[in-house]
């Protein structure tokens, strides 16, 4: 199964992507994730102000058949969530990189070093498909 893994992003083993700029992380799910889930019909995300811990669950994404937890790639505070996804969760299927989920103010930028680059993430997906 071929899927899109943009070079410039960082990734978690739980199939979230992270784009970092000025200490703020934009977070979403990868193309591999949306494709494995199939039709995404529901997304539950935390409100702005919520404190997230790296690797702890922060929400869920549901397909018709299944519920999957979302794991925070980093420790930090939610600055913004993409409310468009509540009404139109299928946007995650059509473009998972354009349709981000959260913007997080990163507490410890050194955690970024623990995330995978595109090549490592591609290899990780290879092992799961």
């Amino acid at each position: 199964m071929s899927h899109n893994v943009p070079e410039e992003l960082k990734y978690t083993k739980e199939h979230e992507w992270v784009a970092e700029a000025s200490g703020i992380a934009t977070v979403g799910i990868t193309d591999f994730a949306q494709s494995s889930l199939g039709d995404i019909v529901f997304v539950e995300l935390p409100e702005a102000g919520t404190e997230l811990a790296a690797e702890a669950t922060f929400g869920v994404v549901e397909s018709i058949k299944s519920v999957s937890d979302l794991y925070s790639p980093l420790t930090g505070e939610v600055l913004e969530r993409n409310d468009e996804l509540e009404a139109s969760p299928e946007l995650l299927n059509s473009d998972p990189y354009q349709n981000w989920m959260l913007k997080i103010k990163i507490s410890d930028t050194s955690q970024l070093d623990g995330l995978m680059n595109a090549a490592d993430y591609s290899a990780h997906c290879e092992g799961q498909s």
Binding site: G38, D39, V41, S63, I64, K65
Partner: peptide
């Protein structure tokens, strides 16, 4: 088969 493509 659980699904071929889109369940919907």
């Amino acid at each position: 088969p659980i699904q071929y493509g889109s369940v919907k």
